[in-house]
């Protein structure tokens, strides 16, 4: 019995769960007839194919060499968190404050950032964004406040 590559198994199981979920939800849609195919057929079939493919990968994972997978958590949280804050707040606190928070959080993901570099970048992007996106391209965002 060969050793299983744990990472391969985790990834395959995740995709398998996705396929299973699609099948379960898809069962609720109309099946139609053999001539007029309903809305359920395609997604359910895809889900089944997905589950089968993941089975193949699980089979292969016995032969695979185990690798280390390095996911960097801190920069990912800072960057994705920055986008999250921007998306949730931009319509309420305005373009400039939201952008300032976004730039600050994303900059913190890089260890080489200094307060001066963050400040300079924030001022530049806020000015550029206001001029190009809001004034010139007329994206309906308010500069300050909701």
């Amino acid at each position: 019995m060969g050793r299983f590559d744990r990472n391969e198994v985790i990834a395959a199981l995740a995709f398998m769960a996705f396929g299973l979920f699609w099948v379960v939800v898809g069962m609720g849609y109309s099946w139609g007839s053999s001539v007029r195919i309903g809305a359920a057929v395609f997604p359910v079939a895809l889900g089944v194919i997905m589950i089968a493919l993941c089975g193949v990968i699980l089979g292969q994972s016995r032969q695979a060499e185990a690798r280390r997978i390095g996911l960097k958590v801190r920069p990912a949280i800072l960057i994705l968190g920055g986008i999250l804050v921007w998306a949730l707040s931009v319509d309420h606190i305005g373009f400039l404050p939201a952008t300032a928070i976004l730039v600050a959080l994303c900059s913190l993901a890089e260890r080489e950032s200094t307060w001066r570099s963050i400040l300079g970048l924030t001022v530049f992007l806020c000015a550029f964004g206001t001029l190009v996106f809001i004034t010139a391209l007329r994206i309906p965002l308010s500069v300050l406040g909701g």
Binding site: C106, E110, L121, I139
Partner: peptide
């Protein structure tokens, strides 16, 4: 440097995607 490039790119992505439907979703 990355510390300038990456926040800048993320900013452009945010505004660009927002502008498609003018919706933060």
């Amino acid at each position: 440097p990355k510390r300038v490039l990456f926040p800048g790119v993320i900013f452009f992505i945010c505004v660009g995607v927002y502008s498609v439907n003018n919706n933060p979703f």
